[in-house]
Computed example of a mutant assay.
Amino acid sequence: VNFTNIIRVCGYPSRETGAGDSVNAQTMEALEGPLTTVFLPTIYIIVFAIGLPTNTLALWVFLFRTKKRHPSSIYMANLALADLLYVIWTPLKIAYHFKGNNWIFGDGLCKVLVAFFYANMYCSMAFIACISVQRYWAVVYPMSQRQRSNVLAVSISVGVWMLVWLTTIPLYLYDQEVYIRNMDIKTCHDVTRPSQKKIAAGYFLTMGTLGFVVPAVVCIISYILMLKALRSNMGDSTIGQKRRKAVVLIITVLVMFFLCFTPSNMMLLVHYTLLLLEAENNMYGFYITTLCLASLNSCIDPFIYYFISEDFREHVKNTFLCRSQRTVERSKVSFSALKFSKDNTC
């Protein structure tokens, strides 16, 4: 979870001084209140406790247990990596909020934490869009060449990582750590200096538009086209059951996407528009709640993999049962041989 420019959201600007910035009483109350010192770190603890083991397991399954590579598994592995790279930094944020929003880890780590949060969010949306397109392609063109598709999936994944990390460079170029003189604390990404508001607003309005709106449109179009393709075969009882499961999955992924990312990104766009217009903004409570929802995608994604991929479910079960891949393959061969023998018995 990350919340941006608390003073600006609440409509209480800081003022620059030589020795640090000062904030008014209402802003001090917000920085010292239970919303930021109890609620936020509690959410971070949940994200870390669930997200770390589940994403580690998911990444391990995709890298070391899945032998038959296909584009969806490649995109899901990248999504798990993006979530894991964010989750490992959350203990710093937990400590920060429990210490009364006092950042003690230096400006460098503050910038890294901020960059990883936004990189995770925009990588997640991009890879979910890739998964959506891939599933549509698999429904419409099921006989497409797998090897060529895998090469394309790897190339697209590398391109997404390069693009997202290049776009996070501006976050390293302006102050994320700000010293609040009358509270004697250093905030991390919670206070925007007036001299830097145009840089911050321009960056986040651009990222909010390109990083959220474009993947959202891609997901919606892909799933609408997929539903049209699935509807044509719903009359067949054997095919219809599988395709109804696909429809449920489509709805689940879309609900997860819009629940986690739409409120936070819409509020991000509203917040920075008001910031540029220097208008008062009193929607801090709603804004902070939406960003909590955005961080929860790191916990939800592994469960989406579980429902998307039958192979993933099988590998997870085998992992918990301490069954090696070789043992599973031998049992499958034995079962196939036994079935063949029975089928040929008079």
Rank of each mutant, 00 (worst) to 15 (best):
V255R: 00
F204P: 01
Y306V: 03
Y287E: 07
Y272F: 07
A95Y: 05
F98G: 05
T206L: 12
N55W: 01
V139K: 06
D107F: 03
V87I: 06
F258H: 02
Y306C: 02
S149T: 06
K342F: 14
F212Q: 04
M267C: 08
P13R: 00
T319K: 09
V248R: 10
Y284W: 07
N318G: 13
V333D: 10
A30K: 15
T37S: 04
W89S: 07
K317V: 14
P215Y: 01
S336G: 08
N5T: 12
P91T: 00
I104M: 10
R148S: 10
A200S: 09
K339E: 15
L321Y: 14
A216W: 01
G106M: 04
V247S: 13
K332E: 10
A126G: 08
G208P: 05
I43T: 01
I128Y: 10
A82D: 03
M125A: 05
F3W: 12
M183L: 14
S72C: 07
I88Q: 03
V217I: 09
K228F: 14
R148N: 11
I308H: 06
L296M: 11
G159Y: 01
S334Q: 11
T36R: 06
E278G: 11
L79I: 06
G33A: 11
T27E: 09
L291S: 11
I46P: 12
T262I: 06
I250H: 01
M234D: 12
S124D: 05
L205W: 06
D301N: 15
D83H: 12
I156H: 04
I185M: 03
H271C: 09
V217Y: 02
V154N: 12
V38L: 13
S22A: 09
Y179F: 12
C110P: 05
N120C: 13
H189M: 07
P34Q: 05
G51D: 07
I94F: 01
A119R: 01
F116D: 09
F127Y: 15
T206K: 03
Y122W: 13
N182H: 08
F48N: 00
T289S: 08
T168W: 02
R193V: 08
F105C: 13
V253T: 10
I104D: 06
M28S: 14
Y118S: 11
E310R: 15
C188F: 01
G211V: 02
V154G: 03
F258L: 00
T290E: 06
Q241G: 08
I88E: 01
W137T: 11
I185T: 03
F64G: 03
I199V: 15
E278Y: 13
V140M: 11
V1N: 13
S72H: 09
F127C: 05
T168N: 02
I156L: 04
T42G: 15
V270A: 13
Q241D: 15
L254S: 03
Q26S: 15
F116E: 09
P71R: 00
T192C: 13
S324E: 01
E29M: 04
G20P: 01
M28C: 08
R8E: 13
G106S: 07
V316A: 02
M121H: 13
V9L: 12
L254M: 03
S324R: 02
D343Q: 08
P263M: 00
V214M: 04
M28V: 10
